[in-house]
Design a protein around this nucleic acid. Structure first.
Lengths: 164, 164
DNA sequence: TATTGTTATACTCTATAACTATA
DNA sequence: TATAGTTATAGAGTATAACAATA
């Protein structure tokens, strides 16, 4: 029979065509490789204006007006000192506004400024579009939605490190 | 009607119950949160012996005997200087053996030592078991397999930074 | 001249501990 | 005594540039 170019074997890493072996079914490993793609998407479309953590903080504050730093830290599994550092940068860029809680002066409530809201909305739209454009060659819209849904379920398995 | 405890609204972050808003469908965001879970799994079950990158390198070398450092760097999107650092640590722990290529003396082929192979096999089994135990309350085995499959598809969308 | 791998180095990000202010 | 937030600081990880050896 005539020679023909062999199709590359399945179950191989992107970019280097290495066999994955038992890594193939390991969720943690596949997460790490998929994250390379979404990190590229973010860096291309938003990396000049925001870090990934910064974007996520802005988006969560946008969806949860008057959230506190502690709540953000828990949601993102970032330590309180580090949340304080990121918030400091966002506040100094006038993207986030802090106000002391009238009920408990230890807490401060966070809100986006007008420019913060504009930035996060613009960035969100760009990222949704870029994710779609990047992934659509390899998976359908339904598969993308299913992926986000399954990731959400997996994320719910997080062990609680701190109370409340 | 009688008061009853309200069920928590859906589409909220783990651990802090923040609304996700449009983040809900953003694959990159859900990846980051799901990664928190698998990182916990890894740290609990393997973190005392190996870093995540180290485990992945060992597993890829195991599945691809005589792979080169450059191939590993491409597969994992790690820069060549950093792969050299990780390999140096693994070689000094006698988990990986380097041999110069007879065909091209610039390259070196990597293989696991006996103890490297034993370690990666033991760790792999522990991680598979721990992932299952951690995720099974929130998703079925079929959903886990689907998740790994969709992640693999997403990972294939990686943009090539360097030639072949 | 290009490629593999390494060394040197600076930078970013993170974690831990200690501190202030409030409850 | 506990909690929210911050400051100080050390460590881990990463990236860039420059270099050596080989092709």
């Amino acid at each position: 029979m005539p020679a023909r170019p062999l199709p590359p074997p399945p179950d191989r890493t992107p970019s280097a065509r290495l066999a994955e072996g038992p890594l193939r079914g390991l969720v943690g490993y596949q997460l790490a490789l998929a994250t390379i793609v979404t990190d590229q998407v973010f860096d291309d479309r938003a990396g000049r204006e925001l870090r990934r953590v910064e974007f996520t903080i802005l988006a969560l504050v946008h969806a949860n007006p008057d959230v506190t730093a502690r709540q953000l830290a828990r949601a993102l599994a970032v330590t309180p000192p580090n949340i304080a550092l990121w918030l400091e940068r966002l506040v100094s860029r006038k993207l986030v506004a802090r106000t002391r809680s009238p009920h408990d002066a230890r807490m401060q409530h966070l809100r986006l400024t007008r420019s913060g809201a504009a930035l996060v909305e613009r960035t969100m739209a760009a990222l949704v579009e870029a994710e779609q454009a990047t992934l659509e060659a390899h998976m359908s819209a339904a598969e993308r939605a299913m992926l986000a849904e399954l990731l959400h379920k997996a994320a719910m398995a997080r062990r609680r490190a701190e109370p409340g």
